[in-house]
Simulated scan of single mutants.
Amino acid sequence: MAEHNDSGKLAEQLAADFLVGKGYELVETNYRHGHAEIDLITKHKGLLIFVEVKFRSGTGFGFAEEFVDSVKRKLLIKAADQFIYVNDWHNDIRFDIIGVYKDRTGKINFRHFEDAFY
């Protein structure tokens, strides 16, 4: 597996741990529908939350949340619609983005954007 894939999978696990530590319930990871993949699906306070995780080893090329463009959002929404249908979910939903950043010392930091888009 390529190094960027390894770091992406590690970032997803770190983000999942971060959310669980904040009281979120992890429902599913890497949910696929067609060409779309939702990194994390969680529940929190009655909401079903679809989470896109982006890893950056710095901010020189921009922040993680800037890399979730309109095409990616459409794919996420399409996959979320399928998950909602298959699981017969009738309550509210939300789309979040979590940026996972590694600083020069190797320390991991998170930026959590709740209700990032729809």
Rank of each mutant, 00 (worst) to 15 (best):
H90F: 14
F63G: 00
E37M: 07
N91E: 15
E65W: 02
G106Q: 07
I108G: 03
E66F: 11
H35S: 15
L47W: 11
E37A: 06
V100I: 03
G34W: 10
F61Q: 14
D39A: 08
E28F: 05
F55M: 02
F95E: 08
K102G: 04
S70H: 10
E25H: 11
I41Q: 04
I98K: 01
I77S: 11
F18A: 03
L40M: 06
K72G: 11
G62E: 11
A79H: 03
I84K: 01
A36V: 08
V100D: 02
A80Q: 05
Y31F: 15
L47T: 05
F50D: 05
S57M: 04
V71C: 08
S57L: 03
L75P: 03
K45T: 09
E65M: 06
T59I: 13
G60E: 15
F95I: 00
F95L: 03
N91F: 13
E25R: 12
A16G: 04
R73Q: 00
L26W: 06
F50P: 04
Y31M: 09
A64Q: 07
L48P: 02
R56S: 06
Q82Y: 12
I98V: 09
D39E: 09
N109C: 09
T29V: 06
F61E: 11
N30G: 15
D92W: 13
K22F: 12
K74M: 07
K43G: 06
Q82R: 14
F63S: 00
A36L: 08
E12S: 13
L10D: 13
D92P: 01
V27I: 14
G8E: 11
E37D: 09
L19E: 10
D96Y: 12
D88W: 09
F67R: 08
D96R: 08
G23T: 06
V68M: 10
K78L: 09
T42S: 10
T105H: 14
G46W: 01
K107L: 14
K78C: 01
L47F: 14
H35F: 05
E66N: 11
Q13F: 00
S57I: 03
A79F: 08
L47K: 03
R94T: 12
L75T: 10
F55T: 00
D88C: 12
E65I: 05
A15W: 01
N91V: 09
Y101N: 07
I93A: 06
I93S: 06
K22E: 12
I84Y: 04
D81F: 02
K102D: 07
V27H: 03
I93E: 08
I97L: 04
D39I: 00
V68R: 12
L48D: 00
T42H: 05
V53P: 01
R32P: 06
K43F: 07
I98M: 04
F18P: 08
A15H: 00
F95V: 01
N91H: 15
L75F: 14
I84N: 00
V27W: 07
F83I: 02
R32H: 13
G21I: 09
K74Y: 14
K54P: 05
L47I: 08
K43C: 05
G34K: 13
T42V: 14
L40Q: 08
F18V: 06
F95Y: 04
A79P: 02
Y24V: 10
